[in-house]
């Protein structure tokens, strides 16, 4: 194996991983979401590093499985998938393309700076349906660990908000 063949293999790996999406938000690839931290190839051996969005994210096992499947389908055999906690995943890693995809899917993307700070910090979240910022939070914890449940007071639609983290 030469550095050139390693670089070629890495391109194939990245291409194969383009098809791996978050099982709970299937419009986002793991690269969009920032879960995919690193892909290294050395002497033909591939190391894929992923990081969980939340400690107990139940999708992590499935994502690791999906990565293995995608690589195997692409004819890549010699690989390891490992999980790292540090640096801790943050919603800041969500790509701009990812934010746009979320919005189109009906999930309000995270608003920076709304994660912590004051105990009762308020945040302005725009409705992904009509764009109104006259919205209110119904529940801090939504359908998955990474989302909260909100409602638009203008169009009255409930919607998911991707919590800032």
């Amino acid at each position: 194996m030469t550095p050139q063949t390693d670089a070629l293999l890495r391109t194939r790996v990245l291409h194969a991983l383009d098809d791996v999406t978050d099982p709970e938000i299937p419009v986002l690839t793991i690269a969009d979401l920032g879960i995919l931290r690193d892909v290294r190839v050395h002497n033909g051996v591939v190391d894929v590093t992923i990081t969980p969005t939340y400690s107990g994210c139940p999708a992590m096992n499935m994502i690791a499985l999906d990565i293995e499947t995608a690589l195997a389908r692409a004819g890549i055999e010699n690989f390891h998938v490992k999980t790292t906690l540090s640096p801790a995943w943050t919603t800041a890693w969500l790509s701009e393309a990812g934010r746009q995809k979320l919005l189109a899917y009906g999930i309000a993307p995270p608003q920076e700076g709304s994660g912590r700070g004051s105990l009762f910090g308020t945040v302005e979240v725009a409705c992904p349906q009509c764009g109104s910022t006259d919205t209110s939070r119904l529940a801090e914890f939504g359908s998955t660990s990474c989302k909260a449940l909100w409602r638009c007071n203008t169009c009255r639609e409930p919607f998911d908000y991707f919590r800032c983290h």
């Binding site: 801790a88 995943w89 914890f141």
Partner: peptide, 24 residues
């Protein structure tokens, strides 16, 4: 300890929400 620091960094983001939710 780098590993303990990593666990703490992850956990703290989560517990911040737990505290806010329960305080309310």
């Amino acid at each position: 300890d780098a590993q303990l620091a990593a666990i703490a960094e992850k956990a703290e983001k989560e517990t911040a929400y737990h505290l806010r939710y329960t305080s309310e």
